[in-house]
């Protein structure tokens, strides 16, 4: 599993990644996975709590906000919304 940019988040990240990978291949790809409130949700929350601080400290949150703005048209194309 790959590392987090914030070493202090590695442990919570690894726990989430492992859970997600299992969910993805065993449930999602077989057509019975929902992303909200599944077995990995709590682990994701813990990971995000740690990561959010790290992104703010490094000023990455602002760069991300700009990039997301640019990505809106891709969302429209790839989410197949009418």
């Amino acid at each position: 599993m790959s590392a987090s940019l914030a070493p202090e988040c590695n442990e919570v990240k690894e726990r989430y990644d492992t859970c997600f990978l299992k969910w993805y291949s065993e449930k999602y790809l077989r057509g019975n996975g929902k992303a909200d409130n599944n077995e990995c949700s709590k682990l994701f929350e813990n990971y995000q709590k740690c990561l959010k601080v790290a992104l703010e400290e490094r000023g990455i949150d602002k760069l991300l906000a700009e990039a997301r703005e640019d990505n809106k048209e891709n969302d429209a194309i790839h989410m197949k919304r009418k």
Binding site: S2, G33, A35, L64
Partner: peptide
């Protein structure tokens, strides 16, 4: 590699 958001 960090995951920032995920939803179905």
């Amino acid at each position: 590699v960090d995951t920032l958001s995920r939803r179905v």
